[in-house]
């Protein structure tokens, strides 16, 4: 049974990764990263169940906490960029090249 959860998590992770690579709206990229993190959480819970230990479930709390802190900082950075150039399109934010 564990395999089903692992496959689901792998698919979610791949969808998230694809989203980061092909979407150009920075907010959507951030959402895709969150999807990847949640795919990892599903994996951890499934594996914790399989191993019969609580470790994997405890790790999920760490991941959730850190992800929340990361989003708080990330949204502030996105806001700052929007205030600077009135756009959050990743293709239009490119000053540094070469």
């Amino acid at each position: 049974m564990t395999e089903h959860y692992l496959v689901l998590a792998a698919i979610l992770f791949a969808i998230g990764g694809l989203g980061v690579l092909i979407r150009r709206n920075v907010i959507v990229i951030l959402m895709s990263v969150e999807l990847m993190l949640n795919a990892v959480n599903v994996t951890f819970v499934a594996l914790a169940r399989q191993h019969g230990s609580m470790d994997g479930q405890v790790i999920v709390f760490f991941v959730l906490t850190v992800a929340a802190a990361e989003v708080a900082v990330g949204l502030a950075i996105i806001l700052m960029n929007f205030a600077q150039r009135k756009t959050i399109n990743a293709d239009e934010i490119r000053l540094l090249r070469g």
């Binding site: 980061v20 920075v26 990229i29 951030l30 990263v33 990847m36 990361e70 900082v73 990330g74 950075i77 996105i78 700052m80 960029n81 600077q84 150039r85 990743a90 934010i93 490119r94 000053l95 540094l96």
Partner: peptide, 14 residues
């Protein structure tokens, strides 16, 4: 600087 922060953050989170 804003662009550096954005790139660093997005790739770091990835």
């Amino acid at each position: 600087s804003g662009e550096a922060a954005l790139k660093y953050f997005l790739l770091g989170a990835f």
